[in-house]
């Protein structure tokens, strides 16, 4: 159990190595790993016996959900730091992570039903895991709607509180997958007793997909934070231009 947990944590944190100033270098590495992950999914990973080819959705579906949960965890941490330190930078991190988290959560909510249709015979079921994931998506969409007016610090603080409280939904989702009797499949990556339910080929493919998604996440995060910082600098410069001596 401990080894698998350590492996999972390493896979998520490994892409942190690639946070550098050179975004082209980062983009190239991300592109190569993503291409490798796609090749593994379609060529290397075997078809699952019961579900057939449609099971391959699992690799990007679960990677998207881990990425979304990591993004919302970052919103949680950055929101606490913003309320504590009142530093604009933490607010920018929280807003960026929330937007990226919503993108990946949307992908989870789209690819899940696409997998469910041939397997369950229905696109959607109001089962606890699916419903809680939809609630999670709605919470962070509300967060983004609150942040539409970027100039209001009161809204930023209120959104930070929502970012912290909203995170409570994630442990509930994880708990529902494991403990509640739901339609959603039980965890196969790390099962009770610390074993994995995946053969090596599938586990390796999933590990590469997860690294690719984490690289993508940090790349997008850097780009998004850079946009917020540029917007802030432009505001300062505009103020300077308005106060320039005329004539």
């Amino acid at each position: 159990m401990r080894t698998l947990s350590m492996l999972l944590i390493s896979m998520i944190s490994f892409p942190l190595v690639f946070i550098r100033n050179n975004s082209i270098y980062q983009a190239i590495v991300m592109y190569v790993v993503m291409l490798f992950a796609t090749l593994l999914v379609f060529i290397y990973a075997p078809n699952e016996q019961m579900q057939g080819i449609v099971q391959k959705i699992f690799y990007f579906h679960v990677s998207s959900s881990v990425t979304a949960f990591s993004a919302f965890f970052l919103v949680f941490v950055a929101s606490i730091m913003y309320l504590w330190k009142n530093a604009e930078w933490w607010d920018a991190v929280a807003l960026s992570a929330a937007e990226i988290g919503v993108v990946f959560c949307t992908l989870v909510l789209i690819t899940g039903p696409i997998w469910a249709r041939p397997i369950w015979g229905t696109w959607w079921s109001w089962d606890p895991t699916l419903t809680l994931t939809l609630v999670l998506w709605l919470i962070y969409v509300a967060y983004l709607m609150l942040r539409l007016d970027a100039h209001d610090p009161k809204r930023s603080r209120f959104a930070a509180v929502l970012g912290i409280v909203g995170y409570v939904d994630i442990p509930l989702i994880l708990w529902s997958v494991e403990k509640w009797r739901t339609l959603h499949p039980k965890p196969v990556l790390i099962q009770e007793g610390g074993t994995t339910g995946l053969p090596f080929t599938m586990l390796f493919t999933f590990a590469v997909c997860l690294v690719a998604f984490m690289l993508l996440f940090f790349y997008l995060l850097r780009e998004r934070i850079s946009i917020i910082q540029s917007q802030h600098t432009i505001e300062v410069l505009r103020h300077q231009v308005d106060n320039l001596p005329t004539g």
Binding site: K56, I57, T111, I114
Partner: peptide, 19 residues
């Protein structure tokens, strides 16, 4: 290749949205 279109739809959506 049964259900191939579901797989195609899932991956196309992911690539298009991220792109």
């Amino acid at each position: 290749m049964k259900n191939f279109w579901y797989l195609f739809a899932a991956y196309s959506t992911i690539w298009t949205a991220l792109g």
